[in-house]
């Protein structure tokens, strides 16, 4: 293990021991699993998104590995606000900052969850306004545009003082406008990006789409270039912390995201390709890469790709 190299980053008023964050929707169902991920070395963790009412989500298959990453249409299954408040109590026991993810179909829903989450020990909140495969939510709920972002973020920020991250879609024409709207409405930062989609894969034997919902969001190595470009564009245009998420699976990928302008990095699909040890391993890889380059802190390389 390489010591004497500090990877800690300050984000939403917390010191993260490293910039690696568990992305929402991966393993974030229970506090025990969050603690497990924390013990495996994550700098922060994000819970699976919570709506006011319980949701069963889409029928299975909901998550499939297709060779270049994952395609998923989980459909926001979650136990609803009341049970979530019980599950995600005493979060200081998790061992790292925890981000609470909120979904809703209308401004009132977001506010209701925000009011309850404000009372819990979440270090920050996140709102994904970009899911490509759930009716009434994200893209399918017309939430991925600057107007909707402004309305939803304003509502949440008027009900909580916790820092809010807005998760945006990749390859959107109005990506920068969405981030500016989020900032104007009081958001703290941007998580870039959500899964890409909708995407679809069809089983040619049955003639049916593989996913239970048919369409889904694509994640993993296939989407990394889209995510890096989104982070690059946002860093240039908007003065807000960015969590670079999308296809990150190695220390090199993390450095790449940070050079594009990310303050921290989200990990999701790499839990499949590398297992739970991915957090610890990537941290070591980053240290090695920084040492090789004679760099002593993450801040020294942030946005490096923008220098002329």
């Amino acid at each position: 293990m390489i010591k004497n190299l500090d990877l800690s980053v300050e984000l939403f008023g917390c010191m993260l021991k490293n910039p690696i964050i568990l992305a929402s929707g991966i393993l974030g169902t229970t506090r025990n699993l969050l603690r497990m991920v924390s013990q495996n070395g994550a700098g922060a963790v994000t819970i699976k998104s919570i709506s006011v009412d319980p949701r069963k989500g889409h029928p299975n298959p909901t998550v499939l590995a297709f060779g270049h990453g994952l395609i998923n249409a989980v459909g926001y299954s979650n136990p609803g606000l009341e049970k979530a408040v019980q599950e995600f109590s005493d979060l200081h026991e998790i061992g790292c900052p925890v981000i609470g993810s909120i979904i809703g179909t209308c401004v009132e829903d977001f506010s209701r969850v925000a009011i309850e989450f404000d009372k819990l020990e979440f270090s920050a909140l996140e709102v994904p306004l970009s899911c490509p495969h759930t009716p009434e939510y994200g893209k399918m709920g017309n939430q991925d545009n600057p107007d909707a972002v402004f309305r939803i973020v304003s509502a949440i920020c008027s009900n909580t003082s916790k820092p809010l991250l807005v998760k945006v879609p990749p390859a959107a024409n109005d990506l920068v406008e969405m981030a500016l709207a989020a900032k104007a409405a009081g958001a703290y930062g941007i998580t870039a990006v959500n899964t890409v989609g909708p995407g679809m894969l069809i089983d040619i034997d049955s003639g049916k789409p593989y996913l239970g919902f048919g369409m889904g969001g694509i994640s993993g190595p296939a989407i990394k270039p889209l995510a890096v470009a989104a982070v690059f564009q946002l860093y240039k245009a908007v003065d807000m912390p960015i969590i670079g998420t999308g296809g990150v699976s190695t220390g090199r990928d993390v450095i790449e995201m940070i050079m594009a302008g990310a303050s921290a990095v989200g990990i999701g699909t790499a839990v499949l390709s590398r297992g739970l040890s991915v957090f610890q391993e990537i941290t070591e890889e980053i240290k090695q890469l920084l040492l090789e380059r004679g760099v002593s802190s993450i801040a020294d390389i942030r946005g490096l790709a923008h220098e002329v």
Binding site: G25, L27, G28, N32, V63, V74, L272, G275
Partner: peptide, 17 residues
Amino acid sequence: MKCGIGICGQCVCGPTR
């Protein structure tokens, strides 16, 4: 169980998948 591959967190039992 949903994904079967250790990603979704649905089949959690204590700290294990």
